[in-house]
């Protein structure tokens, strides 16, 4: 029996992986993803675990290499979009991406901002980033797009004196602050320990 569900999680990566893990606990294994759709097939409840990885800062080549590496390790990996954008021929500059920014197009990395990684459940928590140093680096890649957007809206609000832009800026700073808090916590831990 297969099952199809429609969900959209946007930037709520943890919520998305929690949902997939809950589905797996109920005996639904992910087989296909669409923009908003998730297709499942039946499996023994609790056989698989899921993790979401944000990879939009990578170039197409390094994203593919990373996906290949995860597959070689024995995981099943899906690409997933983070935003809802159906346009064709999209070209977008990502200043927060690696090496001073990257251009994303439909043919390369656009709509492939996330990886959904599936692992056979071995009773241990499924984490891709384990050392503090690496978790700090990864948390920064999560924070930077929000930080850039928030800063842009703030500048817009000040320059144009548009207070709705200011409200958007304030809202965009919420995820920035949450990631910043996580970074502060990790940095403190990293002072004495490596992981």
């Amino acid at each position: 029996m297969s099952k199809k569900s429609y969900r959209f999680f946007g930037g709520l990566l943890q919520t998305q992986s929690n949902w997939l893990n809950k589905m797996a606990e109920k005996g639904h294994r992910l087989v296909r993803t669409g923009k908003m759709s998730y297709e499942f097939e039946d499996c023994e409840p609790g056989t698989y675990q899921y993790c979401i990885e944000f990879i939009a800062e990578k170039s197409q080549q390094s994203a593919q290499q990373y996906k290949q590496f995860l597959e070689d390790v024995g995981y099943k990996v899906f690409y997933k979009n983070i935003n809802l954008n159906y346009s064709i021929g999209k070209v977008r500059y990502r200043p927060w991406a690696e090496k001073g920014g990257r251009i994303a197009t439909n043919a390369t990395t656009f709509n492939k901002e996330l990886l959904i990684v599936e692992k056979r459940n071995d009773g241990k928590p499924f984490e891709l980033h384990t050392s503090y140093e690496d978790r700090i680096a990864y948390t920064k890649t999560l924070r930077n797009p929000w930080l850039l957007m928030a800063a842009l809206f703030l500048i817009l609000a000040i320059v144009q004196k548009l207070w709705p832009m200011g409200i958007i800026a304030v809202l965009l700073f919420i995820p920035v602050l949450l990631y910043q808090r996580e970074l502060a916590k990790l940095s403190k831990l990293a002072k004495t320990r490596e992981w």
């Binding site: 990885e53 990373y66 590496f69 891709l128 980033h129 384990t130 050392s131 690496d134 680096a137 990864y138």
Partner: peptide, 12 residues
């Protein structure tokens, strides 16, 4: 004692 996440290993 030391279990490496795949992402951390990839970075290393």
């Amino acid at each position: 004692r030391l279990e490496l996440g795949a992402g951390t290993l990839y970075g290393a």
